[in-house]
Amino acid sequence: MNDVQGTILEIVGSLLERANKGDVEVTLDAPIHGDGLGLDSLETAELSALLEDEFGTDPFGAGLMPENISEIVAFYATVEGAGESALA
């Protein structure tokens, strides 16, 4: 597990905990919406803001609609320099 991926999982985990969904298991391929993590629009908006706070950019803001954590991790793999603040 690389650090960007670890940080993303941590952000999602704490977001779920605050949303009283702490018992939901966070896996890379769990769908973000619906039966997976069950994030609603405001929680997804928060995820977008938190990712931007952490990495300076985020897939939602870039116009993408990732469906699971893997797709978010994949987004940062394509963005040069992303994740530096997480590694520091």
Binding site: S41, L42, A45, S48, A49, F60, G63
Partner: peptide, 12 residues
């Protein structure tokens, strides 16, 4: 307010 792609803006 911070512009947000999903809900227009969120409180920051």
């Amino acid at each position: 307010g911070r512009t947000n792609a999903l809900v227009g803006a969120v409180v920051a």
